[in-house]
Write a protein that binds this DNA or RNA. Sequence first.
DNA 1: TGGGTGACCATAG
DNA 2: ACTATGGCCACCC
Length: 120
Amino acid sequence: MTGPIKISEQHRDFFAMVFEVVKQIPEGRVTSYGAIARYLGMGRSSRMVGWAMNASHSQPEFVPAHRVVNRNGVLTGKHHFASPTAMQALLEEEGIKVVEDQIQNFETYLWDPAKELALD
DNA sequence: TGGGTGACCATAG
DNA sequence: ACTATGGCCACCC
């Protein structure tokens, strides 16, 4: 990994925090909005994570938004991509199989930042 | 000023 | 197993 996030430093900018976490999702892995919210200490405000992702497309740096799905492994955000199939295509490029907007073997690919990223 | 909405989630019945 | 509801909190009329 590229290194843990220093919450205290990023704490002012919610967007930046979310993007930093998303950017650290390894290729071929996925996580959920709620997992990110919990990792950032936002409790149940998982909707805010989704809201933040809305702005991910206009980020100067690449944000792998396609690696963020809901807690069931469903591609709920696919409609916000360039095309309806773009999100699925990106995931399948990374070896993740998607059927009917549902990631197969979701638990296998799940990457929980709270578990995988050590807090400093 | 205030109500509706959302790329969500957990709980209750 | 499935629906309903509340919470979350910033944004947009």
